[in-house]
């Protein structure tokens, strides 16, 4: 589906991540709704959640590009396997949405 359909805007069912956090869309954490009694949540359609998440990553990529021509990561340093300096570094790449 290319377009907008109201009936498709309901987010998927929530899965519990821990006492305070749930997940509806893959890799997108959300507060447990029970914590939002005093400051109510909005009715945010699916497209909007996805837009915010994508925009965040676009923004962060933009910031990197704003500050330097390229970004050097430890994974790149590590991939130069013969480097004795890097023995034993654990890159625990965390899956965060």
């Amino acid at each position: 589906m290319l377009g907008f359909l109201l009936s498709r805007q309901r987010p998927p069912e929530a899965r519990r991540i821990n006492d305070d956090v749930i997940m509806r869309f893959d890799h997108v954490y959300e507060v447990a709704p029970g914590k939002m009694d005093l400051f109510p949540q909005q009715d945010i359609p699916a497209w909007d959640t996805l837009r915010i998440v994508a925009s965040r990553w676009d923004h962060l990529a933009w910031m990197h590009d704003h500050w330097a021509d390229s970004v050097l990561g430890v994974e790149e340093l590590e991939s130069e396997a013969d480097d004795p300096d890097l023995d034993g570094i654990q890159a625990s790449g965390v899956p965060s949405g």
Binding site: M36, Q42, T49, I52
Partner: peptide
């Protein structure tokens, strides 16, 4: 409202963004 951190960084988490 998109650039606002209350949207961009936490709007999806809290289901509450700047409008």
């Amino acid at each position: 409202e998109l650039r606002c951190p209350n949207t961009l960084f936490t709007g999806d988490f809290y289901r509450n963004r700047t409008q």
